[in-house]
Each structure stands twice: as structure tokens, then as C-alpha cells.
Amino acid sequence: MSWENYMPYIYAIFAPFALALFGIIYGLVLKGFDRKLAAHMQWRVGPPLRQPFYDVLKLFEKENIVPKNAVPWIFNSAPIISMGALILALLYLPIGPFNPVLGNYGDLIVLLYILALPGLAMMLGGFSSSSPYSAVGAQREFIMILSYEFPLAIIIFTFAWKYSILYPNLKAFSLLTFVEHPLWQNVGILGFIGLLILLITMLVVTTGEVGRMPFDIADAGTEISGGALLEYTGKNLGLFYLADAVKIVVMGTLIITFFFPYNLSSLLLHYFSLPHYAWLTIDFLFYLLKLFIISFVVVTVMRVAFPRFRVDQVVKFYWGYATLASLIALSLIVLDTVGGV
């Protein structure tokens, strides 16, 4: 038994901690950038970039209050479920140039179900705190989950169908297939338009999933005083804050895997020759840059430009316009594939 035999086990134990740390730290950095850039867009000077770290440190110092009529075990476990589900989702996603840790044990279908868990945890937390405002917030969160899952599912199935036609001997739903064979060069002009529509729909779905304006009806500040997170204080609120930060990383990585899995190393390999670790670092930094651009478009610009939708407008938007757009894109891609062959 030598050192190398233990490597898979060390990797399996070490990777979740490293991924959790990366998700939390970079998620908080993205949040800091979001507040700073949004402030500059509103002609102010925003907080320093380290502000979300100060927020989290302060939240963990406050007293933890559990309401008297709440259900304690659901109330205290909801933030932990939310956080745990998001770290589990990070294990199934390819981070930069690295393959997913649990790549052989699950694919996109499992990920779709795991991504529904944080919203469900927030909903459970809202229902278990015994307050009418938080019940209303939890109902709205439930409506949000029902709304945005539909276009998301259509997008995922469109990609899987296309891959099953193009590469019949690879697994259609596996994320490794998505990363190694980007779809932009394998479609004709109709398919290109369809992919563009899918990209826009995916960006809009991400804004809803992350819970930012115009879709932040669950945590609506001025309407229902905090919504589902009303009764949370202290470390529970800190965990929800961190989960919110990690969710941006998870959803951004999903968009990058679908639409922009390109790496700088494949481009620059012909001009330079560097050791393997240097290429990994460059690719990782490029991935961070892509994540920052996606966060800017999805979170900051949408937050500054739009007010909040009503509940019925959100449902009409997702089940009406977004679903229609993704179905049109699906039919365009089908037309492109079948017509070309």
C-alpha cells in the first residue's frame, strides 16, 4: 500500500471542503462586486468590496431567536438543507478545467432535482416559522419554484436531445459531454438562432432562481417585511445569506457549462508551451472571469434596471413567454437538425 493508492480517498474527502470554501468565498466576492457596481450605476459610491464578509461575520455574532410557536427542528434545519444542497450541486458541476467530482455517479437529471432543494428549504423554513408574513413569503417561493422549473426543464431536454442525435454513443445527459463538445459550431443558421433564444431564456430563468429583481417576490422587502426569512436571526440568517451567495456560483457554472465551456488553453496551446499546472491556473482564472460577467448581467443589471413584478405577472412571464420562447427554440433546433440531414 503506497501513497498513490490512497489518492482517490484523499481526493474524495478533500474535494467537498475545497469546493465549499471556493463556493462561499467567490460567492461573497461576487456579491461584493454586485453591490459596488450597482451603487456606481446609481451614481453613488458603494460599500467596500469586502462588505459581504463583514455582513456574514456580524450575523454570526448575533443572538439566535427561535419563535415560540415555530417547529424547531424544521426551523433550524432549513438553512442547513439549503446550504448542503448547494454544496452537493457544486460536486456535480465542472468547475473551470476540472471534471466534476461525482461525474460518474450522476448527471443532469440529478442536478435538476438537487437545484430545486434550496427553494424548498426556504419554503419549509417560511412555513415553520409561525408568522403570517412568512407564510405568504413561503407560498410565493413555492410559486416561483413551480414557475421557473418549466423553462429550465425544456432547455435541458433540448440540449440532451441534440446531443443524443449528434453523438449517439456518448451519454446524452452527462455534463462531460456538454463540456467537451460545445454546440455552437454544430448547428446551422436556424439552430444558431434557436441557441441564442435559449441563452436569453436561461439568463432570465437564472435571475428568478437566484431570487433577484424583478423576480424577488419571495423575499420582498417592502411588501411583506422580509417574506420567508422573516423570523430568522443570527447564525440561521447567516447560513441563508451564504447559501444565497453560493447559488450564484452554481447557476453561473450551469450557464457556462451549457453555453460557454471554452477554455483559453485550447486556444493558446499553439503559441506558448507552459507546464500543465500553469494551463490549469489560466483556465481557472478565465472561468472566474466568465462567472463574473454572467453575475454582472444576471444579477446587477437586472436588479438596477427593473422594479419588482407582481406574483401573477411572474407566473405569466415564466409559463407564458419564457416557455413559449424555449419551445420555439426547440422547434428551430429540431428543424435545423432534421432539415439538414
Partner: peptide, 21 residues
Amino acid sequence: ASIYDMERFGLIVVDNPKHAD
């Protein structure tokens, strides 16, 4: 608002007393 911006010191306004300091 813009000129006397209070968010640059980290102060934000929350909407219920349970989140407030």
C-alpha cells in the same frame, strides 16, 4: 440617496426588526 450615501459605511436599511441592529 446619492450624495450622502450611507451604504459606503456598510449601513443598509432592512425591513423588519428581527434582522436589525
